[in-house]
Amino acid sequence: MADNVTPRVRVPREASAGDSVSVRTLISHPMESGQRRDGDGNIIPRQIINRFTCDFNGQNVVDVTLEPAISTNPYFQFEAVVNETGTFQFTWYDDDGSVYEETADIAVS
């Protein structure tokens, strides 16, 4: 498991029903590409976040497949339509099987 993998998310605190709100997400992860070599010349094995999903009140917003070409500390910004108050669920899947999660609430009137 990569060390110190910390997700951060940002959604507006409130919105009106039907709004498309901007969601920003970041997770601290080295995204080791599998292309680098260590001091002895050996390949440093690949270890990346390979998938990221976001759901709102159980409905999928985005489902992203990530490859090693995504930068260290993967950042995604996208939009979600919110029709009711609820909770965003964010999930990141690591090559090594670890799963990282985060949630965020929004009040919709």
């Binding site: 709100v21 999928n60 917003v61 985005v62 930068s71 950042y75 995604f76 910004q77 979600a80």
Partner: peptide
């Protein structure tokens, strides 16, 4: 997915 707003995204590569 069905709850997506604008079909757009930003990232860093």
């Amino acid at each position: 997915g069905p709850a997506a707003g604008r079909h757009a995204a930003s990232t860093r590569i």
